[in-house]
Design a binder for these strands. Structure first.
Lengths: 131, 131
DNA sequence: CAGTATCCCAACGGATACTG
DNA sequence: CAGTATCCGTTGGGATACTG
């Protein structure tokens, strides 16, 4: 039913999916979302399409193997589109899909939480290792 | 300055931390948060203290090695407390700290997003592999 | 530039057995 | 019950070299 409201869809999902169950496909999706580079890639695409090289430069430390792999995964899951412009040299742009854009605030929140609370975590670590 | 407002702290954090940088400690924290089991453990502690065994049963498929390891990491980072009641047999309770409780809505959002949008992701995958 | 293909080591993480 | 210790296969992920 394409006319389901988002509230209805959420209710339906609650019946169908439960990430606490090992067999649930959600578990795998959660793994993808929790991937080392996913949050950063999604965040880097927040402001619009980006080329492969732009992403590589923006996300310091990512190897191009991992970047490609992460992007492929996101493309496969319908979160990112990949468009090739045939020229010389080739140009490839990645962009969030509507679905990916729905994920954006959630992922951004994690990245932001980490940045905002880093101090307190470092203090906690000092206390934990320390005495 | 313990009297800094949260807005001030956020602004300060923006100056100090940037997860796009490889050397930033945030990168490591982001890894912890993006850990395979972290989201589920945090979610399982949402409603109050839980014993080790309770968590193991709630989070299907987690080995006790991974559960312990995840809990230790969260404890180290000041997100979870571990309290031992000396009796026979020993009783150990885990509980979110105030800091951990601040993280809860963020992690819950991911788990919920995954459960809510699983359908569309599965459809995207079918389209990707399919034709 | 964007990407694939290898090689290869380190870690992740499960199974099992043992302790207080 | 709550953990530690060990073994050991699987995967993650970097470095490098090569292609359209």
């Amino acid at each position: 039913m394409a006319t389901a409201t988002s509230a209805q869809r959420r209710e339906q999902a609650r019946r169908d999916y439960d990430a606490f169950l090992a067999a649930c496909p959600t578990r795998e999706l959660l793994s993808t979302l929790s991937d080392k580079w996913t949050a950063l890639v999604i965040a880097a695409l927040a402001d619009g399409p980006r080329r492969h090289g732009e992403l590589a430069r923006r996300i310091a430390g990512v190897s191009q193997k991992m970047l490609t792999q992460t992007l492929r995964g996101l493309e496969r899951d319908g979160l990112v589109t990949r468009s090739v412009t045939v020229s010389m040299p080739v140009r490839v742009d990645y962009e969030l899909t509507p679905l990916g854009r729905e994920l954006l605030p959630v992922m951004a929140a994690i990245k932001e939480w980490a940045e905002t609370h880093m101090d307190r975590v470092l203090q906690a670590r000092a206390r934990f290792e320390g005495p």
